[in-house]
Amino acid sequence: MGETITFWVLAVISVGAALGMVFNRKAVYSALMLGTVMLCLAVLYAVQEAPFLAAVQIIVYTGAVMMLFLFVLMLVGVDSSDSLVETLRGQRFWAAIAGLGFAALIVLAVGNAVFSTQAGLAAATAQGGYIRSIALLLFTKYVFAFEITSALLITAALGAMVLAHREREEKKVTQKEQSRARFLGDRPSPLPGPGTYARNNAIDMPALLPDGSVAESSVNRYIARYDVERGLLPEDPKLAEAIKHRAEEESK
């Protein structure tokens, strides 16, 4: 009874999350939905006498793989969301037909199949318990496949490094060269910090120089742009002017 309740709850959640993953425009949400499905599945594994797999599911999938996904999403750009316009003619229609048809066939097949009562893993794990039995299989019967997976993982790691590696095309700029360029440039000193002479200590408030004029370069260009875009400009027209100016500089 407990299992049935667990199943129905988790089944509804996981199917909902899966649908959400497919239909959500934002990739980050999709990733989170997938994580939800994976966690649900982990619980279902545990319910189905597979605690080891449940642990691995959480550690490897939810922990490692999903983090990797999110990490790459950060690299590629979190903001980007898919356009909803389908470019391939008939793709959605046929995808729906094929996918639903496939699902219907599976349901039909499984629904028609008559299963005997579940054998359960009690007999299989009688000797030495569950973890021992798994280990026994993994390191005897499947030891060869197991070792090959290690080769596979090393190859994958190497491949990822090779693919992601970028060859440096120009010489690395040394600290000496950087320092020389700085002293030969317009401003040898560091940029003024923001808000130093401001009425409120915020990083989007430009500093005021001793003569009361505004130090535009004290505000980070990106922050200035953010402020302009969100309309968060200060009331003081002089400061607002400086931030706008700074933002225009950025957009150049």
Binding site: G99, F102, A103
Partner: peptide, 13 residues
């Protein structure tokens, strides 16, 4: 099977 089909539709769309 349902999850599989949903995944497949996702791949296609």
């Amino acid at each position: 099977g349902l999850l599989f089909a949903i995944g497949a539709i996702g791949v296609l769309t």
